[in-house]
Each structure stands twice: as C-alpha cells, then as structure tokens.
Design a protein around this nucleic acid. Structure first.
Length: 283
DNA sequence: CTAGGATCCTGTCAGC
DNA sequence: TGCTGACAGGATCCTA
C-alpha cells in the first residue's frame, strides 16, 4: 500500500524503462480502474505529486495513476520491474485475476494490478494535471513544508489526534500508515496526542523524522522492492530493513527494549512503544 | 470550519 | 471443514 517512498521508487524505475517508449494499446479489464478514454503516444516525462504518479505523453495528454491501498505497477519487458503493494503478483504470471489495466508499449507491457480496486488510472490533458482536484489540494511534502505552516495547521486541528492529522495529505503530503507510525516513534510522540499539545519543537522534529524515515525507505526500496524480480521469486518483508515499530508488535523497542504494542487510532492499526511514546497525562 | 465514522472492494487469517 | 468477523501501507463522503 504504497506511500510516497514506494511511488518514488516506482517513478525512478519506470523512468528507466518507459521514457521515450510509445504506449500503443490499452486494455481495460476493470472499468472502475480506468477513467477517461484510452490514449496512445510516447512517454515524455514521469512526475510524482505525493502518492500520485503522472505519466506525461508527447501529445498533451497525461496518465494520472494512484495506487491507493493495493495497487501495483509491474513492467514486463526484457526483465521485470515491479513496485507498489508487495505481493506474489510481482513474480506471478500476468495478467491475472487482479490485473485491472494493461498498457502495452512498443518495448514491453505495464500491468496495473489492484486487489481492492481503490486505485485508478485517469487520462487528462497535461495542462490540467496541476488543476486536478486531488493534486491541487496536496500540501507540501516534508522536504518543503515549513515548520510554521505545519505548526499552524496542527493548531487549527487542535482537538484531533496527531496521527490521523498527519495522514491527511492536505496537511502534510506523503505520509501513510507506515511512515506516520515510524515518524511518530522517532519523534517520541504518542499518536493519540491532541495536535494542540504538539510544541513547535516537536513539529520540527516530526518533519525531520518524516524526511528521515522516507529517505531511508527510498534507499531500502531501491535495493529490495525495486529489484528485478527473478523467475524463482524470493519473498521477504522489506519493512525489516528500516521499520522500527511498524508490524513489530511483540518485539522489543530498539531504543528502550519495551515491547512494541499495536493499538487502534482513528480506525487504523497503529504501532507504538508504550514507554517512549506517552500521551498527555501519562508520565 | 472541524471531527469522527462509514464506505469503496477483494482477500486472508484467527477463532469458533 | 465451513462460517464469521476483523483487518488491510488510501482517500472521500456524509453527518453532527
């Protein structure tokens, strides 16, 4: 369930394979997954806005791709390049039951797989990309947001818990469930803390740690998710390479040794060290 | 305006 | 074995 680092990884990979290649045919296996009329044309550029990927063609049209929870892009050319929601589809025969859209290039095939059908590919004029409702309201990413901007937004949402607030892409862009947990752990902030109690210093720390965890993931993704998947398909949890708390419940906190626990915050599974991350009122 | 919950959809897993 | 409910790396829509 791709967050910013996964989409960045996909972008970097696809840049190597499909830039300058011509999209010649689109096959839609699930109507819900493709919005607009199929187009053809050579790939001019690939861009990323938060978790959205944009493929610009040379004819003023663009494909906007959002993987949401379970989307994957798998390029099958001379070799296979896969990224997105990790699953056996990376090595499976394609197309398969979860394949929603097939984009054929003159040099290979790009499969859009999506178990839950939340993701989509949308055709729009290149000039309209930045006017798209979703793109337009995205907040700056951790690398560009100012402490002032985030701090003010947190104060505006002073009665909301911090975790769901930083998952809101209009507050700060790029974090998803994994990196929210990781950034909060690194910052020693309990996910249920009210935004109004977050200090300016903590806001700054949170931004720094958000950058840090995502940079580490991009580096790790580059060597795991982004690798060419071989026919024999080795499987592994790439979170092991960088995650401190996510999916680590029951394991010792790397900082203090207390067991990591899993709780639910605003409906999402949330992983914390109960010793390092205290709520207001706790010692 | 904010805050919280339901919802889209398919698949898997734990517990009876 | 078969059923049932909970849950899932996202975002939107609806209600109060």
């Amino acid at each position: 369930m791709p967050e910013l680092p996964e989409v960045e990884t996909i972008k970097r990979g696809l840049c190597q394979f499909i830039v300058k290649k011509k999209l010649i045919r689109t096959t839609i296996l699930c109507a819900k997954s493709f919005i607009g009329e199929p187009v053809t044309g050579a790939v001019k550029d690939i861009r990323r806005f938060g978790k959205a990927l944009i493929i610009d063609l040379d004819n003023q049209k663009s494909l906007m791709i959002h993987l949401r929870m379970t989307g994957q892009l798998i390029y099958d050319g001379e070799e296979r390049y896969a990224a997105g929601h990790p699953s056996e589809n990376f090595t499976a025969e394609l197309p398969n039951k979860q394949t929603r859209v097939i984009l054929e290039f003159d040099d290979g095939v790009l499969y859009f797989n999506d178990q839950r059908k939340f993701g989509f590919i949308k055709v729009l004029p290149t000039s309209e990309v930045e006017k798209d409702a979703f793109i337009k309201k995205l907040a700056p990413e951790p690398w560009t947001i100012s402490v002032d901007e985030l701090y003010e937004k947190l104060q505006r949402h002073k009665n909301s818990a911090i975790k769901p607030t930083i998952l809101d892409q209009t507050i700060i862009c790029g974090l998803g469930n994994i990196y929210a947990d990781e950034a909060l752990f690194a910052s020693k902030i309990h996910p249920e803390r009210k935004c109004g109690t977050i200090t300016r210093e903590e806001t700054e720390l949170l931004i720094e740690n958000a950058k840090d965890v995502m940079e580490k993931s991009i580096a790790s993704g580059g060597s795991t998710m982004a690798t060419y998947v071989k026919a024999d398909g080795t499987k592994g949890d790439y979170l092991d390479f960088f995650a401190q708390v996510f999916h680590k419940e029951g394991q010792p906190c790397p900082r203090c040794g207390t067991k990591i626990i899993k709780i639910k915050v605003a409906g999402r599974g949330t992983h914390i060290c109960p010793h390092c991350q205290k709520k207001e009122g706790e010692k």
